[in-house]
Simulated assay, not measured.
Amino acid sequence: MTSTDTAKLKRMFDAIAAAIDADKDRLCRLDGVIGDADHGIAMALGFGAVRDALDQIDASTEPTALLNTAAKSFLNAVGASSGPLYATAFMRGAAAVKGKAILEDADVIAMFRAMAQGIQDRGKAELGEKTMVDAWLPAAQAAGVAQQAGKSLSESLDAALAAAESGAEATKDMIATKGRSSRLGERSIGHLDPGAASAVTIIRAMRNSLA
Rank of each mutant, 00 (worst) to 15 (best):
45 L>H: 15
124 K>S: 15
43 M>K: 10
32 G>Y: 00
202 I>N: 05
138 P>T: 05
44 A>T: 14
162 A>Q: 14
157 L>C: 00
194 P>S: 09
177 T>V: 02
87 A>N: 01
135 A>W: 06
24 K>S: 05
80 A>E: 03
119 I>G: 03
170 A>E: 08
27 L>I: 08
123 G>M: 08
189 I>T: 12
122 R>T: 10
26 R>A: 00
137 L>N: 11
124 K>P: 04
195 G>H: 00
146 A>R: 00
11 R>T: 15
197 A>Y: 02
161 L>H: 06
173 D>Y: 05
207 R>Y: 04
156 S>M: 05
183 R>V: 15
98 K>A: 02
40 G>L: 00
167 G>H: 00
169 E>W: 03
161 L>W: 09
73 S>P: 01
1 M>Q: 09
196 A>Q: 09
191 H>P: 14
38 D>L: 09
129 E>M: 11
25 D>A: 13
165 E>G: 06
182 S>A: 14
167 G>A: 06
77 A>E: 11
202 I>P: 04
77 A>H: 07
208 N>M: 15
8 K>E: 15
210 L>T: 06
76 N>A: 14
42 A>Y: 14
193 D>F: 01
209 S>F: 06
31 D>L: 11
79 G>P: 12
208 N>C: 14
110 A>V: 04
100 K>N: 08
94 A>Q: 02
150 G>Y: 00
164 A>D: 12
171 T>S: 03
180 R>H: 02
163 A>G: 05
78 V>A: 03
89 A>N: 00
81 S>T: 14
54 L>M: 10
187 R>N: 00
56 Q>I: 13
102 I>W: 13
192 L>Y: 09
44 A>N: 15
174 M>W: 06
97 V>L: 04
43 M>V: 00
17 A>E: 08
39 H>I: 05
34 I>F: 03
102 I>R: 12
68 N>V: 15
76 N>T: 15
48 G>P: 07
207 R>P: 02
149 A>I: 05
125 A>G: 10
20 I>A: 03
70 A>G: 08
4 T>W: 07
57 I>R: 10
103 L>W: 12
6 T>D: 09
72 K>V: 15
204 R>I: 05
115 M>Y: 01
10 K>R: 12
171 T>F: 01
152 S>E: 03
45 L>S: 08
4 T>I: 15
32 G>K: 04
82 S>W: 10
154 S>M: 15
91 M>I: 13
78 V>R: 09
12 M>A: 07
169 E>N: 08
74 F>L: 04
42 A>R: 14
124 K>F: 09
176 A>D: 04
166 S>K: 13
100 K>L: 15
52 D>V: 06
79 G>T: 01
142 A>E: 05
207 R>K: 15
140 A>H: 02
8 K>V: 13
27 L>W: 02
142 A>L: 02
209 S>D: 06
88 T>Q: 07
114 A>H: 00
84 P>T: 11
26 R>N: 09
35 G>N: 04
192 L>W: 06
38 D>C: 06
116 A>R: 05
70 A>C: 12
40 G>W: 13
207 R>W: 01
139 A>Q: 03
58 D>N: 08
150 G>Q: 12
133 V>A: 10
118 G>M: 07
74 F>M: 15
49 A>I: 05
155 E>M: 03
68 N>C: 11
53 A>D: 05
91 M>E: 11
